[in-house]
């Protein structure tokens, strides 16, 4: 109906609405939890890149264990920490699929350390979204390998002491050293501009996988207002402090020559790898 025909004003243009790939239901997440923001960004990209139909995602154990209820793609639930191993099987039996892995920091950097390192070293063509909230959110806020020095958790009530519990693991920087890895970056959901950067990082990782690249990972510094004993806005402000331990930005983008020890010549020589290797 035109404005001329009815005399009514044209309906306003929609600048933003809930993405289609985000299932229309309320999540079980606590108010203000970053998992919801990260789910929404993934769903927006699945819509924009028209990837939902070909996506097979692997869910972790942790608060995001029910991710399969919220993002409208095919999902497999994996044992705690084993999502990269499950995704390896998915990848090798579904060469056309877009393979997405979603993991928390307890899942990826504690019980699943071996699986993520070896999937990365093998250059599995999967994209891992690594949600680092520095704590075991689901089980009541215990210390994780990612917990900041001095941070109080239910299992480090006096604050994390390196003499007792060691140092935070910068797992993304470690993974970026592996030849099978093509992209690693770290963003944060602290505020609207940071959220926009995370979306751009996820988009880059998704596109590298679609172009036949190797392992890609985006770490997202997220909050756990309940586990941190903060209001949601306080927890978002606190992410600035978290980023002092875990610096933000692109850590490795191999085809752009960004990253530790990247040899652009080697990349070019191996560019046809994805076509040559029968996956």
């Amino acid at each position: 109906m035109t404005t001329e025909a009815t005399g009514a004003p044209a309906p306003p243009r929609i600048l933003y609405q809930r993405p289609r790939a985000l299932v229309d239901k309320s999540t079980h997440y606590c108010p203000g939890c970053g998992h919801g923001i990260i789910h929404r960004l993934i769903a927006e990209l699945l819509d924009e890149l028209e990837l939902a139909q070909q996506t097979i995602a692997v869910a972790p154990v942790g608060c995001s264990v029910f991710a399969y209820d919220y993002i409208a793609v095919d999902w497999i639930e994996s044992p705690h920490g084993r999502a990269p191993a499950v995704a390896t099987g998915v990848r090798r039996t579904n060469s056309d699929a877009f393979v997405l892995v979603y993991q928390g920091d307890g899942d990826l950097a504690a019980i699943g350390t071996a699986e993520i390192i070896h999937a990365a070293a093998r250059g599995e063509r999967i994209t891992t979204v690594f949600v680092n909230n520095g704590i075991y959110g689901m089980t009541g806020g215990q210390m994780a390998p990612t917990t900041l020095l001095g941070q109080k958790t239910t299992s480090s009530p006096l604050g994390r002491d390196p003499k007792l519990a060691g140092y935070p693991i910068p797992i993304s920087e470690m993974l970026a050293l592996l030849r099978g890895v093509d992209y690693v970056s770290r963003g944060s959901v602290a505020d609207p501009p940071s959220v926009g950067k995370v979306k751009a990082m996820l988009k880059r990782a998704f596109e590298i996988q679609r172009a036949g690249g190797g392992f890609t990972l985006v770490e997202v510094l997220s909050n756990c207002p309940v586990g941190w004993g903060m209001t949601a806005p306080e927890s978002m402000a606190h992410l600035a402090e978290v980023a002092e331990t875990y610096p933000l930005g692109v850590i490795l983008d191999r085809s752009k020559g960004i990253g530790p020890g990247v040899d652009p010549g080697l990349s070019t020589r191996l560019a046809g790898r994805a076509e040559e290797a029968p996956r």
């Binding site: 243009r13 929609i14 933003y16 985000l22 309320s26 108010p31 203000g32």
Partner: peptide
């Protein structure tokens, strides 16, 4: 952009 529960539709 920040809402974890995708509550908003925004019109021009």
């Amino acid at each position: 952009r920040v809402c974890p529960d995708a509550v908003f539709t925004v019109f021009a």
